[in-house]
Write a protein that binds this DNA or RNA. Sequence first.
DNA 1: CTCGTTTGGTTGATGTGTCAACCCGAGCGG
DNA 2: CCGCTCGGGTTGACACATCAACCAAACGAG
Lengths: 162, 162
Amino acid sequence: MDGVSKGPWLDDDEQKAWRSYLLMHRTLKAHLERHLQREFGLSGSDFEMLVNLSESESGRMRAFELGRATQWEKSRLSHHLTRMEKRGLIRKEACDSRYPEIVITEEGMAAIKESAPAQAALVRQFFVDVFGPERLGLLGEVSDEIVETIGEHCATDCPLET
Amino acid sequence: MDGVSKGPWLDDDEQKAWRSYLLMHRTLKAHLERHLQREFGLSGSDFEMLVNLSESESGRMRAFELGRATQWEKSRLSHHLTRMEKRGLIRKEACDSRYPEIVITEEGMAAIKESAPAQAALVRQFFVDVFGPERLGLLGEVSDEIVETIGEHCATDCPLET
DNA sequence: CTCGTTTGGTTGATGTGTCAACCCGAGCGG
DNA sequence: CCGCTCGGGTTGACACATCAACCAAACGAG
């Protein structure tokens, strides 16, 4: 089970880095979401929706805009928006030209105004500051490269599986 | 709404890096899991279980060992193991000293032997090789730092909320 | 006009994660 | 012996994600 230096396998350093990375992401995500949930009663998904809505100035967007912004698929979005509506964080409001608009409620606005600074502080404390500016910059670059690489790959080998 | 340079908020570069990172992780994870699902009918969770079991030489572990290895909470583990048992990937086998042992089946073994190299190849292609050795090394270091930082933080401020 | 396709959105079934409650046997103070 | 708590594990209810099917308006070609 060795001699595979050129095979698909990862060598020890690579394995270690990959697993450290996975653990880090899980830990960080869990920490952020647990905080959000306990302090503000919001899930990470709720937060993502509210961030996008609240950034939109008018506080109202069409569902597919939210979908584009978050990269969620439409059914997930639809399900989640109905749940959020039940909890009073948003409203679906009929507007003139077909299809409802998603409007953030006062309650939703209050929730995000309260929670966003706290979340940002945690991201700073446990992510930004630990990386430091140089390494953070590198990470950003690599991340973009990876997204692009995967995008290219998908475009060339699964374009509509005709 | 500005003048918060020292506040909890992230500046533009930090925001950008953070969001790139989030997007990268989502994209990569989705890509890996979609592949795993389509080619081998395994979820990421199945894969994680099988990797740990198959690495254990005897192919059998107690549930809480799996829990420790994967950092899953026990109920999630229990649920998932019963589902995997239903699909024939593992068996729960009574052993002498109380509590069942989790055993990987032939089918489970076959699944992981087939899928693991393919997964590793994707990780190499879209993660390891895009980073390159130096940047990957840095990432591993930072990841460990972050995990440690969060660990310390939790140890000091939520030790048994008495 | 009409038919087929696309677009934006909903719905239901099913698989998965999370929380809290519970079960049960082991260790232990009294 | 009794009653504790504790560790390992299961269960049920519920939140969430994913997939495929569906729906209805809009659009475009014939």
